[in-house]
Amino acid sequence: MAWRTLAILACVGVLLVGGLTRSNDLFPFGVLDQFSSGTDPNGEVVNTCLQGIREGGAPFDIRFGQRSVGIERADVENSLPAIKADPQLLAPLAAEYDRRHPDQEPLNALVLCQRITSLQDGTAQGEEEFVEVVRWEAS
């Protein structure tokens, strides 16, 4: 009985520490911070996006996900500083996309972008703004 009681107390304790220190590192007992940053009703919504470019073609949207570029949007968003510092981190995404589209020309460039919607009193206002964050180009 003792170890079973202690096991529960220890896990709850780690969960508490993870929550108070905002640490995701303590997974699976880290901070449960999904959707925890309340968005300012007069702020903005940043929607991360991907665009592919082929030789002579116009940019086109590419979905995130295992069945597209081999990684989810949230993984990319949480690695944004690293990708900005080293755009080569986008290379495996382009490679995976090309692998899944063998009948088409390979990508010349992959653009990590953001579509930004402004909010006013909690509702969307005006047109969304497009921002290019970082670009990987095939060498």
């Binding site: 901070v31 925890s36 009703p41 919504v45």
Partner: peptide
Amino acid sequence: FSVIPKILYSGSLANWGNSAILTWASIR
């Protein structure tokens, strides 16, 4: 335990409750 980060990240539970988090999630 998801209540703790809501207080820490949003300042207070009221800030979170009155925020535009679901609008944000819906648009995204």
